[in-house]
Structure formats: C-alpha cells, structure tokens
Write a protein that binds this DNA or RNA. Structure first.
Lengths: 369, 369
DNA sequence: TGGAATTGTGAATCCCGAT
DNA sequence: CATCGGGATTCACAATTCC
C-alpha cells in the first residue's frame, strides 16, 4: 500500500487456513479483536459429570445426593464455557456470528452463557438425525437430535443470512429451524491407522455446508476453536472460505491435516449463490416516466382493481384523496402501514394489467448491457 | 381405614381435579412434599418482542405481548424460574418427573436451572411443528419447533416410562426425541366470548396426550403450575389421570372450567388412532449437494443430451442462459411451461448418464432406516 | 349445493441506507 | 445518534365468501 491512510485488511494478520496447536482460549486471545466473520464451535459435551463419580480413595460419590459436588462440576463446565466464549466474542467482527452445537447435557449451559455474555440468539436449530443410535435399554426416548444455537455478536449486529440461497436449498420454501440429516458414517467417517474411528463425535460435512452457505460469504474467515478432525475446515475450504482451526490433540490434528490436503475447492462460479433483491440497483419510479415507459397522466390500477391513480411528471402518483410516491399512495389507499408500490400498481397493456415492476426489470436489464 | 398403621394415601390431602387461583409458588408451598407424580409446566417464555410485526400482506401479527410475559432482565427471569422450580421439586414424589416447555428465548435458562436444582435431565424433546408461522421478513430460519425438557426429580429416581405404549403410538418403532405435530388451531383452539383466541399460547392436546401416556400411569396426579386454559387438565381427565391446576388469570380459569366440564374421559376402546402414514418425504435437491452426492460445479445433462447445466452450492443450476431450480432451468431450456427436473437431469457415473432421481431414492431409503 | 377463490392467522426477540 | 422513506417479505390450514 502506498498510502499510509489505507487500512490493511485485518485478515492479513490472521493465521489463515492453518491449525493452531494448543489451548483455544490462549490462541484466541492472541488474535486481533474484531477480525473473524464466523465462529463454529463443537465444544466438549460433558466434562466429568460421570467420570468424577469416584473419589481418590475409590469410594463412589452419590452425585445426586451431593449437591456441592454436582454444583461444582456444572460450575467448572460453566467457567470453561464462559472463558472460551468470551475469547471468541472478542475476536468476532461486530457483524459476526457464532454457531455452537450441543446435546441436552451441555446445550443449556451454552445457551445461558451466550445470553449472559450479550450474544444475541438468532435461532436455535435442531439437527434431526435420520439414523440415530437407538436407546438400547428402552428407558428413554431415542436421542435423535442435537441442538445448534446461532447467535450474533450483539443485538444490533448485521449478521450474514443468505435467505434466498437457503430457500433454494430447501426447494423453494424458506429454511426451517429443523434440519434432517444423517449422522457422519460410511466413507465420510475418518479412521485412524488402526482402523478405528479417528474422532468420537465427527460431524457430517452436510451440516457445515448448510451453516457456511447460509451464514457466510465467499472469502470470509471461519474459526473453529474445537477443530477435531477438521470438518469445519474441510467444508470451508470446499466452499471458498478461509478457516482457522484450534486443536489440542495431536492425533486429531494429524488426521485433519491429511483430510484438508485432499480437499478440492469447488470452482468459484459454483459458489455464487442466489442473491437478495435488496442487492439489486435501485431504480427510481420517476426514471420510468423520464424514459417514456409510463406517460404522465397515464392511469395505474391497484393489483386488486379496487383503486386507481394517475402518474405525474415528477414520478409521483395522484389518487382521489392521496398523493405521493407509488408506495405512499398504495399504503394510503389500502390503509396499510406500508406498501410495495412496484408490485401493487399495474398499468394496462393490450387490455391486460401488467405490474409496473415489469418495467423496472426492463430498465435493470438495459443497465447491465 | 381400620388399621391405624396403614398410611393414608398422600393424594387424599391434595386438591385433586381443581384449579387453584393465584400464585403458583405460594400454592405449591402449601401442598405436602413428595405428593405429586408429574409436573407439566409451560411457563412464560420472556419473548422480549420489540415493535409490531406485519405479514407481507400488511396484516398485523397478534403478538404475545401480555404483561405476564414481561421480565426486566435475564436475572429477573432466572429468579422467577428458580423459585417455581424449587417449589415444584419439593412436592414431587421421589420417583416423580417434570416436563417443561420453552423456546430459545427461555429454554436455556430453564434447562440450566433444572440442572442447578439437581433435577436429572432424561431427554430433551423437540416439538417439530407441521405448520409454524413463517419468518415474514426473511431474516432468520422459520422458528419451526419448541423444546421440551423431561427430567427426573433426582438421578436415582425411578421415573415412569411406558416404553411399549410409546412404541405402539409410533407404529412399532421406538419413540424418538422429535415429535411432529401441528400447532393448536381450528376447533381445538378455544375462543372467548368476543370470538378471539382465549389464550395466546394454547398447546395442542396431542402434545399432552403423548406426555401423559408416555410418562404417567392411570390414577397419577399431574400438576400444572401455569394452567392457562387447561390443556393439561383436559388431557389428564380424558386419560384417567388426576390434575391440579394453578392459574392467576381469571379469564383463563373461566375458559378452563368450561372446557373441563365438557371433557368426557376415554373408555379403553375409545382411544384415538394415529393418522395415516404421510406421503413420501420431500427431498430438496439442495440436500443432495449438502450431502456431497453432487458437487458444486458438477455438470448435469438433460435426458436427451441436448442441454447441460452446472450445479451451484445452493442447489440451483446455472446454464447458458438460465438459472434457478432444477425444474425451472429444465423448463426454460426446453421452452416448456414446466419440467420435472428429477427425471430430466442426469449426472455421469462411470461414463453413463444416471438420472438424479436415483440419488433422491438413495436419500429416501437412508431416511427410512 | 358444491367447488373455487379469498381471507384469516399462528409463542416472532423479523430492514436498511441516506441524511 | 435519530429520522425518514423506499420497498422487501410467508407457509400450512381452517374458515368464509363467492359463483
């Protein structure tokens, strides 16, 4: 950069597309604040609730009768949770967001901690497993789902949400908060050299695909503080996003490195996703009049045929008892708080009503040429 | 009882099949400890709604903005929650259990409080709504589920779980932790004299039916500290269980009294049968991409080999001069009004064209397992 | 009277850029 | 920071009205 006033992109200070070895809180504290677009975290589900049921002398602790012990283990989990969540929040960009995943053992601690740390929950999402492990003893319901929480850094944050892309992924219906997906098995399930599963809770890449397509843009930086065998990194790399992984266990890192080396990113033009109408260039209604697509004095009709208005030379409308923009007049005539005049108003062509939005499309396509 | 040593059943001291008017903590504190078999609680969700919300057709959403759902802070909500949960726990029998229901606004507070008070979580259960209210502004996922938590009074408690009955309810398959049910509407939705909904958040009786059949026995006592319009009482009475309802609002109590008076308990042979099996599950094309069965950037060919298109990451196709869903692009390329993309498009496997419908069949068979 | 079309509605933390 | 105003945004049912 020649000009000293030009800002260096914060991502240039980040260890992109790497796995950092060690404690996630320490590593996150060493990263610059407000630098990461998304965090995906699959933290340990259950620290020691079962494992600590024995005292050092091997006598068994009746945990449910021992309120202090019970409390202390949840308290320890809460301390751990709040430490890494606070570190994660610092490095998130103001418009960033976080996903966490858990089961009933830990997800209530996670959610409460998120709220207490001023994250703003956007949705909880249920991963409904098509092929869960049955309950062998017949003592409870089949534990057939896990819960994800999606939260913005703050209430005011303008989080990324690719609504139209997600709608396409769901065959034209808006995506719901329950996602049906199989667990990670078969060829996708990574094995170690001994042929055993390399990680006890490997997540399916399909889950990360939906998270990443839905809530990030190409080129974004996604950090996973509990990287494991690298599902987040693999999906990010495939989808043209950057990742930062943090992991303590060298066995997992080894498997993840192998995996990432084999990932082939999708081609760039396949990553373009159905866009939002808000992103399209704004066309003032008046420009239709200027271009002669509508004539001052011409009559427009509401979509339901109940109201009409006349076009004026300055691109406003005048009706029986209302005047103003296409939106304002539509809203006034319908007694509605607002109105999209582009779809509300129709003109006549060959006797047929045509929405004026058709003319806007025409202008937009002319602009692209 | 002739013999003085014979214990008087504790339920004889209980105000069975009645609605207690007033604060639930005070009423629960006045009941004998270890006396109730099950508690079902649908507490305020603390929705924290801001302004008004309108549907795209400009009608206003009738929000749950009642005073009883307003809390000044999470800390205030937690104090409220822990107070009623502690009172509830005292009156539960040692082998008793509790169900609570909530949304992401409050359910993490509920779950954490249950754990902190030494309840023992048995399952979280997701109510997947078949007909939720959509997200009108396209800014989040459709909030299509609510969460129930089922917990024993203690870890050691021998809670009631009618495994076989639930299995029968589920067509011979073990009951899962996700329950698919419609919201309460139509004739079941109670109205007040003005014809408005009598309660903003009335729960479907089907939900309570499953809870009660699955986790109580006939003759058990079920207490609901937030009785509302009495769904718990109605389902309990129908199923031959006792209820105790607690409610503050006289409007709700009046409706609930009417309702309960009309409930006719089931006879054994009058139990309703679950509905017929649904049609084959819909598989969005996008889920094939998410699952890695098709790769973004991969080329598809029309069945006649005349056209090709590329898969994008959001499950849309892009061809030379068309983009959109598999059906839309097929129709555009053929100049046809419509097109079944599942049979139109083929991918290459071992040099041979294979219809993408083959992949859909594969996903369907995985879902049935 | 029957089918089609229209209207109503549900626990909702629901916009965003320019000035 | 607040205000203004353009204009983007919905799925499954049930109930009602229309033809």
């Amino acid at each position: 950069m020649l000009r000293g006033t030009k800002k260096v992109p914060v991502s240039s200070k980040l260890p992109l597309d790497q796995i950092l070895v060690g404690d996630c809180v320490e590593h996150m504290n060493a990263l610059p604040e407000n630098s990461v677009d998304l965090i995906f975290a699959d933290p340990p589900y259950n620290l020691q609730l079962r494992g600590e049921l024995h005292r050092p002398n091997n006598t068994r602790v009746d945990a449910c009768d021992d309120a202090w012990d019970q409390f202390s283990s949840f308290a320890a989990y809460d301390r751990f949770t709040r430490a890494w969540l606070a570190a994660a929040r610092r490095i998130l960009k103001p418009d960033g967001a976080i996903w966490v995943i858990g089961s009933y053992h830990n997800v209530f601690r996670l959610g409460a901690a998120l709220q207490d740390l001023d994250f703003w929950i956007l949705n909880d999402v249920v991963w409904r497993k098509t092929n869960p492990m049955p309950n062998f003893r017949g003592k409870r319901f089949t534990n057939a789902h896990e819960t994800l929480i999606w939260a913005g850094k703050t209430e005011a944050g303008k989080y990324t949400f690719n609504y139209e892309a997600l709608k396409e992924l769901n065959d034209g219906l808006q995506m719901r908060s329950d996602w049906v997906m199989p667990i990670c098995s078969g060829g996708e399930r990574l094995k170690n050299r001994a042929g055993e599963k390399a990680h006890p809770t490997q997540k399916p890449e399909a889950l990360l695909h939906r998270v990443i397509v839905g809530t990030t843009n190409p080129g974004d930086v996604i950090l996973d503080p509990f990287f494991g065998t690298g599902t987040t990194g693999a999906a990010a790399r495939r989808l043209g996003r950057h990742f930062i992984g943090i992991e303590r266990e060298s066995d997992y890192i080894e498997v993840a490195q192998d995996r990432l080396a084999r990932v082939v990113p999708y081609e760039a033009d396949a990553l373009k996703v159905t866009g939002s109408k808000r992103a399209e260039p704004r066309i003032p209604f008046g420009s239709l009049v200027e271009r002669g697509l509508l004539r001052p004095g011409e009559e427009l009709w509401s979509f339901n045929g109940r109201h009409k208005a006349k076009v004026r030379a300055d691109g406003t409308l005048i009706a029986h008892d209302a005047r103003g923009s296409i939106h304002q007049v539509g809203a006034a005539l319908e007694g509605a708080p607002s109105c999209n005049g582009w779809t509300y108003w129709h003109f006549r062509r060959d006797g047929q009503p045509v929405p004026i939005d058709m003319l806007r499309q025409q202008v937009r396509s002319e602009m692209q040429e």
